[in-house]
Simulated assay, not measured.
Amino acid sequence: MTSRVLLVSPAMSTSLRQARFDDGGSIDESGAARARSAAGALPSAGRVLTSPTVRCRETAAALGLDGVPVPELAGLDVGRWRGRTLEEVGAAEPEAVGRWLTDPDCAPHGGESVRDLCERVAGGLADAQQLEGRTIAVVEPEVVRAAVAGALGMPAAVFWRLDVPPLTVTELSGRAGRWNLRLGCPLAAPEAA
C-alpha cells in the first residue's frame, strides 16, 4: 500500500513578506490571484486537510479545495513572539533568538520548540502512512520543514536549513515505514488542452 501526501505551502501574505511570525492575517491579493490561477493543478485526493491558520484555509479555498482544518497540522507556536517580525524580536531579545535558531529544544518565546513541532508532525505522518491513496494538506512552511526532516530521518537541527517558498508542493510517498521525497514543485495554472 502506497500513501502519498502533498504538502502545499500557503500563498503569499503580508506577514510572509515582512518575515512576521503568523499574526492570523489573510493571504494578500497577489497570493490569492496566484492560487486561483493554479486551481485544478493538483491531482484529486481522498483527503484534503489544512493547518488551522487563516492563510492556509484561504489558500485551500483559492485553489478550489474544501479542506478540513486539523489542529495537529498547526504551525509552530511561537508564544509571545506571535505577530512580531524576526527583526523586532532579534533587536529586543538577541540572545533568545540566537538560542532558538541553533537549539531545536529551545523555546524562549514560551511556545513550542522546533523538536516538539517535528515530533508532532512526525506523528501525523505515521498516521498518514496507514492510509491508502493521496492526501493534500495546505500547511504552514514550518510544517513542511518538519515533515521533510521527519520523513528522511534527519535531526531536528536541519529544520532551519530548509526553505519552503509560497505556493509550492512537496510530495511524500511512502510504504512500509519509509518515505520518498519530491521537493518544491511550484503550483502553476493547468495548461489548456
Rank of each mutant, 00 (worst) to 15 (best):
S173L: 11
A147K: 15
A146D: 08
A39Y: 05
A32L: 15
E112Q: 06
R4I: 14
A41Q: 01
T14H: 06
Q130W: 00
G110S: 10
G177K: 04
V78L: 12
A107K: 04
L162K: 04
A45P: 14
P190V: 05
T102F: 01
A122C: 15
A45F: 11
C106A: 13
V70L: 14
E119P: 01
A32Y: 08
W160R: 09
D127W: 15
G90I: 05
A189P: 09
P104L: 11
R134P: 15
V121H: 02
R84Y: 03
A107T: 03
A45W: 08
L152P: 06
D22S: 07
A61Q: 12
R82S: 15
L117I: 11
D127C: 14
L183R: 11
R134K: 04
D23C: 07
E88S: 10
P69H: 08
S113V: 06
S37V: 02
P190T: 02
T59Q: 00
A156S: 09
P190K: 01
A137G: 10
A32Q: 13
D23V: 03
A11E: 03
V143G: 05
R80I: 12
A33G: 02
S26L: 03
E112G: 05
P186K: 11
L167P: 05
V48C: 14
R134A: 09
G98W: 01
V144S: 06
G153T: 06
R47C: 07
D103G: 01
R120W: 02
T102R: 14
C106V: 04
S13K: 05
P186I: 10
D23T: 04
A32H: 07
A32D: 13
G98N: 06
G133M: 04
L16C: 06
G40W: 11
L16A: 14
G79N: 01
V78M: 05
W81Y: 03
C106T: 04
A156Y: 00
A189M: 01
G40A: 03
D28S: 02
A11I: 01
R120N: 02
D66A: 15
A19Y: 09
A189Q: 14
A147F: 12
R82M: 11
V8I: 13
L125A: 08
L187Y: 07
L63E: 00
L49I: 12
A126V: 12
D163Q: 11
E93P: 03
G123K: 12
A74Q: 10
S113D: 03
I27C: 06
A35M: 11
R47N: 06
V143F: 15
A156M: 01
E87R: 14
C118Y: 00
A122N: 15
A188M: 04
T102K: 12
G64I: 08
R80P: 00
T2S: 07
